[in-house]
């Protein structure tokens, strides 16, 4: 049973990645008219340069052979050369990866701590506190991260001068300092959803009969919360975390641009503007890959926290 679960999750992951690869590669071909003129819009090229570019992008081949050729390189983790920077896409990504990974993990930690904390407080304190919580989470869900970024910049960077307005710092400590405002911007835009979903999950457990039984046995309140309410919500928590990490990675495009952080997100925005196709393709594939990897891990970890899944080989 357990092997069937693992098999079906891995198969789903491979299929998702395959479809994403086709779409991402196809986007180059879907550009109306001649992709080369679209990519080089505005610059005059000699016909030799034009031909070289067509060759480099694999546009002389048919879709299928072009795709297989591209996929072959990608599977060897070779994303080609950047058309703007001239260096290899791998080098560009590798240089920016530590910054973006730190930012995503930093923001995820903040978002989870605040979101789960609010969810627990709201779930256990119905009434005025819960209602205030609903308003706060609504605000978080409704506010886009660039608005938060502008407010944070105006207040903490320009007015109070507590944090730098741009840059990603040198060395780990300085980087964390530089990434604090961007991480808070991402947190503000995401913790509301975490709080909402987990509040519902906690509430469901709190009114369940096994909690009533524990209460009837004189189990201390904190132990009930820990061993029954939070313990039984670990599955949904893992799923949320997986989705949050993927969403935050996408979110870095806006936030890194707003705060002038030299990371993958900003590279994506710049590359789209300059039509640096190999870079855009690599980052797109990376974000799909991250989503697939985190949610597959969350699914595969479920049997370890819920024995019932182990028995039936599926989700509840």
């Amino acid at each position: 049973m357990i092997f069937r679960l693992i098999g079906s999750r891995l198969l789903a992951a491979i299929v998702t990645m395959g479809v994403a690869a086709v779409v991402i590669y196809g986007s180059l071909r879907l550009i109306p008219g001649d992709p080369v003129s679209a990519i080089t819009a505005g610059t005059r090229l000699t016909s030799e340069q034009r031909a070289a570019l067509r060759e480099k992008l694999g546009l002389n081949q048919g879709f299928v052979s072009g795709f297989t050729h591209w996929l072959g390189s990608v599977l060897q983790l070779d994303f080609g050369q950047s058309m703007v920077y001239g260096s290899s896409v791998n080098d560009l990504l590798a240089a920016r990866m530590p910054t973006t990974v730190t930012l995503v993990l930093y923001a995820a930690a903040l978002s989870l701590v605040l979101g789960l904390g609010m969810a627990l407080v709201s779930a256990t304190r119905p009434g005025i506190i819960d209602r205030i919580g609903l308003v706060v989470t609504s605000l978080s869900i409704a506010t886009p991260s660039f608005v938060v970024a502008l407010v944070l910049l105006g207040v903490f960077a320009v007015q109070l001068r507590m944090f730098p307005a741009t840059g990603s710092g040198d060395g780990f400590g300085d980087m964390v300092y530089h990434l604090t405002l961007p991480a808070i911007a991402l947190m503000v835009a995401t913790f509301g959803l975490v709080a909402r979903i987990m509040r519902a999950t906690f509430r469901e457990e709190l009114v369940s009969e096994h909690v009533e039984v524990a209460r009837s046995r004189g189990v201390a309140r904190m132990d009930i919360l820990r061993r029954h309410v939070v313990r039984n919500s670990v599955g949904p928590m893992m799923t949320i975390t997986a989705l949050l990490l993927a969403a935050l990675f996408i979110g870095t495009a806006i936030v890194e641009t707003a705060f002038g952080v030299d990371g993958i997100g900003q590279l994506l925005v710049v590359s789209i503007a300059r039509r640096d196709f190999p870079v855009v393709q690599a980052i797109s594939l990376l974000s799909v890959g991250l989503f697939v990897v985190t949610s597959t891990i969350a699914d595969l970890a479920l049997p370890f926290v819920d024995a019932r899944v182990r028995a039936v080989g599926g989700l509840r």
């Binding site: 009837s216 313990r231 819920d306």
Partner: peptide
């Protein structure tokens, strides 16, 4: 708490939902 821990205990109707499934 002392009462529930030492003096009296309750058996509920549905064993399936009385026991924490995980």
């Amino acid at each position: 708490l002392e009462l529930r821990r030492t003096r009296a205990s309750m058996i509920f109707q549905d064993p399936r939902s009385s026991v924490n499934p995980v």
